[in-house]
Amino acid sequence: MNLCANIPRNTLVAFDNFFTSCNLMEDLYEKGIYAVGTARCNRKDLPEIMKNKQPKALKLQKHQFASVTAEPITAIKWFDTKEVSVLTTAHIPLDIMFINQTQKDGSKQKVLCPTANAVYTLSMGGVDLFDHFRSSYPISRKSRKF
């Protein structure tokens, strides 16, 4: 909340799953700040569709999504190559758009995606890319110099 103290109203804030929680989303919404962020499936107060332990009948197929709304928060789970869970206060749950997805052979394919996921990807692309590359080079390993 301290990081968002000087942000003007009607601004969209995107953040990673470390910060995303229902309480934070509600507090930001009350201050007039919209938010979108990925969510960890083991967080407190998340709806059942966000949990990992789902019956087979509720499993999503590739490029399908499910959503639940409890005003002002919408929880969206989308299955691309793996399940992606997003909490948002800025998007309509059934609002979808086409995105270009690069295939293994280098070609582009148009894929249906919830708008919340697409906006999150556009907003957080650089930060997530940095986290991805940083995970490849663990610097906390101990070593001995001979």
Rank of each mutant, 00 (worst) to 15 (best):
P55D: 01
P138N: 08
T38F: 01
S136T: 13
L87V: 06
L87C: 03
A14K: 08
V111Y: 12
L58S: 07
L60I: 03
I76H: 01
K77D: 04
V127D: 03
G106V: 07
A5Y: 03
Q64D: 13
K77L: 10
N6P: 02
V68T: 11
F18Q: 04
R141L: 13
E71K: 15
K51I: 09
N17P: 09
L122P: 00
D131V: 05
K62C: 06
T20A: 12
K31E: 13
S143A: 15
G32L: 05
R9G: 11
K108L: 15
T81D: 11
Q61D: 13
T121K: 11
L60G: 01
C41R: 15
N52P: 06
D95M: 08
P138S: 14
L12F: 04
P72L: 02
L58I: 00
K51Q: 12
K31W: 06
K104V: 10
A90L: 03
P8K: 02
T89P: 01
D27Y: 11
P72V: 07
T38H: 08
Y29K: 15
S67P: 00
R134G: 00
G32H: 05
E48I: 09
N52H: 08
S143I: 12
E26F: 13
N23K: 15
E48Q: 08
T38N: 11
G32K: 06
K77C: 06
Y137V: 15
A116M: 08
A116Y: 02
C4P: 00
P93Y: 07
Q103V: 12
T38R: 09
P47M: 10
L58G: 01
T121W: 00
E71N: 14
P72C: 02
N17I: 05
H63M: 00
I99Q: 07
F133K: 10
S135N: 11
R134T: 07
A39F: 03
K104F: 01
V13I: 14
I73K: 13
N23A: 13
P93H: 07
D128T: 04
K110H: 04
E83S: 12
I96N: 05
N52Q: 13
F15W: 12
R134S: 12
Y34G: 11
I99W: 03
Y120R: 00
P72H: 03
N100I: 00
K31L: 13
R43M: 06
N52F: 09
T38Y: 06
K31H: 14
